[in-house]
């Protein structure tokens, strides 16, 4: 199980523990700068308590790491961050960056096509159809039924929808 406390440190674990200590100390300092030790009911009191707890526990965890033998054959980019995970994180990052400018429909379609192709390695036509199906499903549920206005970007969605509903309305009358 990857979730459990182990008897040796995994590659990068010591560094991670150390980073957590640094993060905790930084946040403790931030919490202190909200209101100092002014009073028990100040806005900074609770964050101070929480970050103090973080600093203490992070230090203990860090010391524990140093006492454990490190894993001999482990490799960070194999066991902890294999290329496929790194690539997927990067792709999602890219998704969030271009979402506003490109709009939801093109971004999501490209995302689905590329990731399914990359992970599932099916044929181009099958992948395209699958991506389209998923996209339509998500668009219908989020945008049309629950009216979550997804970024429109380069596709003038509302104009198209308005035009179509006008077309339908006049057609029906």
């Amino acid at each position: 199980m990857p979730h459990s406390q182990h008897s040796y440190t995994k590659p990068g674990e010591t560094l991670f523990g150390f980073l957590m200590v640094v993060l905790s100390v930084f946040l403790f300092w931030q919490a202190y700068s909200i209101a100092g030790f002014e009073s028990l009911s100040s806005p900074g009191a609770f964050p101070l308590a929480a970050t103090a707890l973080m600093v203490i526990t992070a230090c203990i965890a860090c010391v524990q790491n140093l006492r454990l033998p490190s894993e001999v054959q482990g490799h960070f980019f194999k066991e902890i961050l294999p290329p496929v995970v790194a690539v997927m994180i990067a792709v999602i990052l890219l998704f969030a960056v271009v979402l506003d400018t490109l709009g939801f429909i093109p971004t999501a379609l490209a995302f689905l096509f590329l990731t399914i192709k990359f992970l599932h390695r099916g044929g181009v036509i099958r992948t395209t159809l699958l991506s389209l199906m998923v996209l339509v499903l998500i668009y219908v549920v989020f945008r049309l039924v629950f009216k979550v206005v997804l970024p429109e970007g380069i596709v003038p969605e509302r104009e198209i929808l308005a035009y179509l509903s006008d077309l339908f309305n006049t057609g029906a009358q």
Binding site: Y139, V140, L144, V145, E157, I160, L161, L164, S165, F168
Partner: peptide, 8 residues
């Protein structure tokens, strides 16, 4: 909404 979708 459904009609809009289908048409859209």
């Amino acid at each position: 909404a459904l009609i809009k979708t289908l048409a859209g």
